[in-house]
């Protein structure tokens, strides 16, 4: 065990468990301590949120909060692979919390009911990051707007059949004086009828899990201040044709280009 002085209420870092991260110059003891002292709210504990939460816990994130109002259903299991058939009917946050505590007893895991407009401000303000694991546009835009209001980095993710997209929005003001957010991409919240969720359009577990892993990775990279992680980019995957695209999002880049 390695004792650090950052937060006395956190457990010391298990040097054996995290040996392969501690050895890396890009993480090391300072980085591992930073991860331990990080508080992450995962909103939606389905195909994106449950997988992202698992890998964040595995990396050593010290505090995870889980928000979801749903219970496990049998048709979830093809992509929400941390749940089991005998979990059906039990709240996802309860199952995931128990499983995370077994897997990583040293972390703090809290449960919240669904995030709605009435409670979002109060809950989100307590966290360093919010991971978007929701499956509807209204929730995604609510998280986006509250994170922008309080400058909380948001890790956005979404899927459509065999395609997925994700981005980390740091929410700090850019050179044109406002943060790059989900509304920079999509100024207006789309009609719910126009784009389907997973239940409506279908998807595959490898697609959702890959987006979730990228969400977890983007958060770690940003928290550890790896080069370029603070510059918002939209990552797109078409996992039918195996193509990946990365889109630069900062408006000032476009602005500069126009001036030239």
């Amino acid at each position: 065990m390695i004792h650090t002085n950052h937060h006395s209420d956190f457990l010391p870092i298990d040097a054996d468990r995290f040996a392969h991260q501690l050895w890396m110059p890009d993480i090391g003891l300072d980085g591992q301590t930073t991860l331990r002292d990080t508080r992450v709210l995962v909103v939606g504990c389905g195909a994106l949120g449950s997988i992202a939460a698992w890998y964040l816990a595995a990396s050593g994130i010290g505090t995870l909060a889980l928000s979801d109002g749903d219970t496990v259903a049998i048709h979830n299991l093809h992509r929400q692979v941390l749940y089991r058939p005998d979990d059906c009917g039990v709240k996802k946050t309860q199952v995931l919390r128990n499983r995370l505590k077994e897997f990583a007893p040293f972390i703090t895991v809290n449960e919240y009911s669904a995030i709605i407009a009435d409670n979002a401000d109060m809950i989100l303000r307590d966290f360093d990051y919010v991971v978007d694991g929701t499956d509807n546009s209204a929730a995604k835009f609510l998280l986006n707007d509250v994170c922008a209001k309080y400058t909380i980095p948001l890790v956005y993710g979404s899927v459509y059949r065999l395609e997925g997209q994700c981005a980390l929005f740091p929410m700090h003001s850019n050179n044109v004086g406002h943060p790059t957010t989900l509304r920079t991409l999509f100024p207006q919240e789309p009609n719910a009828d126009a784009i389907s969720d997973c239940a409506g359009s279908g998807t595959l577990g490898t697609v959702t899990s890959m987006i979730a892993l990228w969400q977890a990775h983007l958060l770690i990279a940003h928290r550890l201040r790896w080069q370029g992680a603070d510059v918002p980019r939209l990552f797109l995957w078409d996992m039918k044709t195996m193509q990946q695209t990365s889109i630069a999002l900062e408006q000032e880049s476009v602005y500069t280009e126009k001036i030239i």
Partner: peptide, 10 residues
């Protein structure tokens, strides 16, 4: 040129 629509699945 690429057209990128919103998605909502998760």
């Amino acid at each position: 040129v690429a057209i990128i629509p919103p998605m909502s699945g998760g």
